[in-house]
Write a protein that binds this DNA or RNA. Structure first.
Lengths: 153, 153
DNA sequence: TTCTAACAATTAGCCCTTCTAACTAATTAT
DNA sequence: ATAATTAGTTAGAAGGGCTAATTGTTAGAA
């Protein structure tokens, strides 16, 4: 039985926003509230790419430079990231995550993964395998990058 | 080979935000900008459930009543929805989508689905089948509702 | 029956997200 | 040197989402 792209598109369009809402809600439900999703994503990227510039972050997040600038501003204001000037090219920033930023990022990740893991526990292992395969396929389609799951060792 | 829930959770956590960003970006890229994702979701729900109350919408979207009130306010301000008092219970609203709201909603859906369909076209049919199965499994897990894909006939 | 409890929706106030347009400052190229 | 490019910021707008407190409305109990 054939699966046309239209059908898959409908299902993706229906389900992805639902899961995203869950993720957002779990991330922001901590006491005290830790990180929003974009904040987490920015921290996570800079954590893995110390010394990244603002545009590096913007490109990775798919945001405009002004949006990213404001986002980074907030993170620095909360003491989670630092902004340094490079002597080489004084236009380019050198961003880095603070200890506290690293800690908060790990906490946000753990909390979210724990929640998702819990949700995915009550299903057939076969279904989980299907999900993993689907995620890999989608990752490839939407990023052009076949690598996945290497971020967190 | 066994797939532990932790692995599936990681993949979901990595891939879902990426796809969501794409969806958001496509929805907002129209000229003139049409709808945001929550606006689309609200319109779509009320379109299928004419006369719904504010709490009906809030529950379906997973938002608090104040957030939903503001959201609906915006839609009414743009002439996409109407708010009516019910004589039966004057506390309860009767929301409805205007012709223009319906049109804009269809346009947003078509645009997004066209984009997703295009992305999903360049992959094995087998991969698409895996994706469809994964979406159904995820939908069930996250909503408790096995029905999917009945929204758009 | 009147007083109270519950309910539907809104307002106010907070902070975050994201954009475009316009700007400053630094670097590279002509 | 001057012009073009690049990195990043500021300003201003519209929206998303929350909690706490408020206004009406309905239903229930004394």
């Amino acid at each position: 039985m054939s699966v046309p792209p239209e059908e898959a598109a409908k299902d993706v369009f229906e389900v992805v926003p639902i899961i995203m809402r869950e993720i957002r809600s779990v991330m922001r439900s901590k006491r005290p509230p830790v990180l929003t999703v974009p904040q987490y994503r920015a921290l996570s990227f800079v954590d893995r790419n110390a010394g990244a510039s603002l545009l590096d972050v913007a490109n990775h997040l798919g945001l405009t430079p002004p949006s990213t600038s404001k986002l980074v501003d907030g993170l620095i204001g909360h003491g989670l990231m630092t902004r340094e000037e490079q002597p080489v090219d004084r236009r380019r920033l050198k961003l880095a995550v603070t200890d506290r930023g690293h800690k908060d990022m790990i906490a946000a990740r753990q909390g979210t993964l724990a929640y998702l893991t819990d949700r995915l526990r009550n299903m057939d292992e076969g279904d989980r395998e299907v999900i993993v395969r689907a995620m890999k396929a989608l990752h490839l389609i939407f990023t052009g990058n076949p690598k996945i799951g290497e971020r967190w060792g």
